Computed example of a mutant assay.
Amino acid sequence: MGPHAGVPPQTPGIDAVIALLGATGYTGKLVATELSRRGIPHRLGARSPEKLASVPSDAERFVLDVGESGRLDEFLDGATAVISTVGPFIRLGMPAVEAAARNGVPYVDSTGEQQFMADVYAKFADAPAPIVPGCGFDFIPADLAAAVAMADLGSEVSEIAVHTQAAPIPSRGTARTTVEMAEALSSDARVRRVAFPDRVRTAVEFPFGDVPLARHAGRARVVTTMVLPSAVAPVVRRLSGVLPKLAPLVERLPEGPSPKMRARAKFRVLAEALGPGGRAAVLCEGRDVYGLTARFLVAAAEKVTGAGAMAPAEALDPVPFLDTVTGEDEHGAFSWRHLSA
């Protein structure tokens, strides 16, 4: 879980400049706010000059389209890292990854699309800089907590399971990810009983988070689940053929929730490593997954290390990173802890 060979972690300073691509979108604006709040030098990139001018930031602004490779190269010139929030990633995300790899610039993004992540892992294994998709809420807590749990077990891991309990919040990005998950959901997906610290809860196996986690889980079986009300769980297994048909409705949803709604939305992520030697578990919890996505992305842009396409836990040192992003403010709350067996 230590640093990898290749690009070292960024040291914040006067010469550090983070390039933010997709700065006018819902997540992009939150990331711009986080960069400004922390006083980190940055530049903003997006297609619309009018929308770009409205982003509250003193940063340099680049009007560009992700299809303009030359303009992307200019945007990344001198950057110490790039954060991409340009989605849907499976359709729009690859040019930014290619530009980062071409220019040797560390790359992180907010994707929740596992097929995109798998494509990036396959295509950029030999990139000269760290290429790390999935550094928002969708994967950072789960992937890093799982790595810590496996290390805590200290022996053979036969299964690594990550269980997510989160209040649903309407947004286009979340809905797109849900549809993708449903397409991969098997009608015979298992319903599990999961021991959270307060009580046992019902969860359904969802293929969400297993692509990055499988990269560093060794031979362990990877399981990811979503906690649902007991009466709902059996029904969800039959939605694999229904939800994908609702994809055209996704674009009618709000761009993202209001700050008040975000602040009310709490979550817990439980990672369990199981093996002949017993069980080790790590719990992450907090509120405002959108505000935390901005926090995670900025911290990841500063701290990713190594070279090539990697899962978050391969490019970040899990315990120090989780400690770094722990805290509570008006933009979200996050904490984590080891659980006793």
Rank of each mutant, 00 (worst) to 15 (best):
D210H: 10
A217Y: 02
T202V: 12
F206W: 06
P197N: 09
S155Y: 06
D119A: 09
A118F: 05
R279C: 09
V269Q: 05
G87H: 01
A333V: 07
V204I: 15
T225P: 01
R71K: 14
G154D: 11
P88Y: 10
G104F: 15
P320E: 13
Y26T: 08
K123P: 01
T326M: 09
V105D: 04
V157N: 11
P106A: 14
M226W: 08
I14S: 14
A100D: 06
F321P: 00
L76G: 03
A281P: 00
A175Q: 03
S186E: 12
G275L: 07
E285R: 13
K245S: 15
P95R: 12
R47M: 10
A46S: 14
G39Y: 12
L64E: 04
A195E: 15
V235F: 13
R337D: 05
L72R: 08
F116H: 04
A217S: 14
R91T: 08
V232L: 15
A147H: 04
D329G: 09
V55L: 14
A167E: 11
G218D: 09
D77C: 08
L283H: 00
G25Q: 00
A146S: 15
L316W: 07
V162Y: 03
V82G: 02
V191F: 04
V222D: 03
R192K: 11
D138P: 04
A182F: 13
E183P: 00
P41L: 11
V250M: 09
V162H: 01
A184D: 07
A189W: 13
A125H: 04
A309D: 01
A220D: 01
L316V: 01
I169S: 14
E255M: 10
V223K: 02
D317E: 15
P212D: 10
E251T: 12
A46C: 05
G286N: 03
P276Q: 04
D210P: 01
V269M: 09
R38T: 06
A231H: 11
D138W: 05
G22P: 05
G39H: 12
E60Y: 06
P207G: 02
H4D: 11
R47Y: 02
Q10V: 11
V319N: 06
T202M: 07
A96I: 04
A313F: 00
V298M: 10
K245I: 00
